[in-house]
Design a protein around this nucleic acid. Sequence first.
RNA 1: GCCGCUGUGGUGAAAUUGGUAUACACGCAAGACUUAAAAUCUUGUGGUCUCAAAAACCGUGUGGGUUCGAUUCCCGCCAGCGGCACCA
Length: 827
Amino acid sequence: MIEEKKAFIDRQEKWMRFWGTHPEFYHGKDDSEKEKKYVLVEFPYPSGLGLHIGHAFTFTGGDVYARFKRMQGYNVLFPMGWDAFGLPTENYAIKTKQRPQRVTADNTTVFEEQMKKLAFSFDWQRKIDTTDPNYYRWTQWIFVKLFEKGLAYKEEMPINWCPSCKIGLANEEVINGKCERCGTAVERRTISQWVVKITDYADKLLEGLERTNFVEKVKLSQINWIGKREGLNINFVVKNSDLKISCFTKYPETIFGVSWVVVSPEYSDLAKLVTEEQKAAVYEYIKQAAGRSELDRTSGTLEKTGVFTGSYVINPVNNKAIPIWVGDYVLANFGTGAVMGVAPHDSRDFLFAQKYNLEMIQVEVPKDKADYKIDSYEKVIEDGVMIGSEQFNGMQARSEANKAISDWMVEQKWAQYKTEYHLRDWIFSRQHYWGEPIPMIYCEKDGWVTVAEDQLPVALPEVEHYEPTDDGKSPLSKIESFVKTTCPKCGGEAVRETDTMPNWAGSDWYYLGYLLSLKSKVESPKNIFTQQQEKIKHWLPVDVYIGGDEHNTLHLLYSRFIYKFLFDLGVLPNDEPYQKRVSHGVILGPDGARMSKSKGNVVVPETVADTYGVDVVRCYLMFMGPFDGTMAWDEKTLMGVKRFLDRFHVYFSRQISHTKTNSDSKDDTNLIIQRTIKGVTEDVENFRYNTALAKMMEMLNKLSASGFQLSIENVKVGLQLLAPFAPYITEDLYQQVRSEGDPMSVHISRWPKWEEKYLMEEKVTMAVAINGKLRDQIVVESKKIKVESEIIKQAKSTEKIKKWLENKTIIKEIYVPGKMVNLVVEG
RNA sequence: GCCGCUGUGGUGAAAUUGGUAUACACGCAAGACUUAAAAUCUUGUGGUCUCAAAAACCGUGUGGGUUCGAUUCCCGCCAGCGGCACCA
């Protein structure tokens, strides 16, 4: 056992050294004449735990594809880098009293070593790091451009606030409404933050999807997130006041049934709406609501709550006064922050009305059921025939009344047509140290001014403490030398913005970063995107982008937005960054639960690789299930893969020593090999790695059983097919059969092609069915497959089929060439 | 709550445009080698019926539908999983 172990370790070290001396094998060339393929995997956050099994799984998947495409003769770009800003590093740095820069450097070194060992064929000369000032200078440059184009603005936005720790918390740090560290109930506070106007791009982001080749589920998640809805903004005048409340609705046909209006607890005019006698109740309610997360507030599992403000609005269509409520299921930063309530035609509204005893005015009935009464939330009607709605009575709600009432209300100037989006503007400020400083300066005279382009980057200064400050501001705010500056416009005294950017900022354009030389300061202030346009044109768009489902909505949307923005600036050749998106799956622990340190079910790829070898880990990860599936780690199945690789090694070693004296090629082995080439090529092309490996197992089983010798060409083919999956073992064997003039490495050799003529078998087995039920099989000569009448005749003549046809009449004969004959009988 | 996905042997899973359900692998059982164990190799392995075999019947979460034929397409139901804007 120990000796066997040593053998694969020696093999790995030997070939890792060899590849190390030839980094050009894996370089993407900016000026190649070959067709390009840009294969992108999401770059990791370099955590202190080292490479996780999920990384190994995803990167192996990308690596197999990149190696396959490279062998097929494409000029492949397969880069890697570090998405290194973020909370975990900051928290770890605080805990261990180290600089986050130091922690990041240590972690990325470990990541890179582990990746090299796992034989990922990354183009290391293009490595990027989002925390490198040469990199984040351009992240900041993008922000400056956003501001210049009016797409970044300051606004009061809510954050999670822990009153005990006195810091702002990420959603992740809020557990059941309590602070993760101290358990105190978390409050919501609003503070002034930078917001990016992604909503301006909502239509472009929707429309651009049509030009991509994303799988349907990814397109859907983008479409649903943008959530475009056509409707009406209805203006309600507040009784005895000059205030107005505007409510967005998709269903204005229910206007005659509106019996209350609800505004969010953060509604800007709320104070003016609350009457003296309701003040105490409303303030108490707002205090409670501050403690609830957004998800809780909108969740159906919690009861909808609210409180009366004491004021009324007038329904413009009938001049009826209806009460104004505050309810926390209405969100301030979504829509107008106010909604109208129609109890009988929306189940949530019904429950709310029932709870607070509000009026229910039914304005629709099912067709031909004029006396239908809605008395439970399960009976609400969402599309009926109009009643109690004056001239609109009798119309079908959605198909007729919706348009008629909308037109009428707009004509009367009670409402405007409005397109609403689920998508909200993007809060871009974080009150933390470990992120890109937002390159803005505030001057009393000139307001917010951008840092000049040739002054970028605004570097992260050294600080004593990395903890957020007790007033909720970033630690940068405590460094006077950083904060105090002069206004770029008037030269007067000014202060810097001390918030930093969210983690998304660096990952929005990293696939561009790989293409460019970011280092040279000389290129400033001219932007590198224009200066290095040739490289960008050569490589973009990304051909295949492999990533997790958790990024199919936000990361994809944000990065598509930034890309489209840069396109509009005129620095990019096209407006969609990714041609195709592939989702990878998730590896669960051996217990079927998500791997986590606290559950103790974490599998570390490096440990497994040290025990069984890198090739075994890679092949097992690709074999355990479909690439986009959720699969539990199972060491026993891994042993099966190890057995396969051992047998593969033994079989091919033996063949190699034999082929040196014998290079006859048997037709039977040709058939097996050729079929495998076809199957594996098609499977790998479509990321069906598990079946590709199954086909190679079949190949090995059949070849070993046949006892025939392989020709030297077929030996090479066998090695090439497995090479993307098991780079070490195949390189080792390849070097033993490599002859003068062959490529230096199996990994830069040319992927084999199959020929149809070898795939034909002389005889084919076909199924014979009676009424669709399989009854017998016949063996047919391949040449005759096209002669339908003869094969049906043969099918009818077998003993078994004759028995089934006794005393029956055939009423139909169906023939599927090469597959089956189905006889439909009667009697 | 909203959005999305999945359901096939004891297990992970496979099945081209609707055309022989369970490829490949794990596990299990029996056997070979061995003093023995491990490793390795060989054979078998959806269910019912049978000493066994043959034959037949049943079988892709569940109830319907379309079709000569449904794991695949359509409708209803049940169960489980994932995402939800400050984790990345």
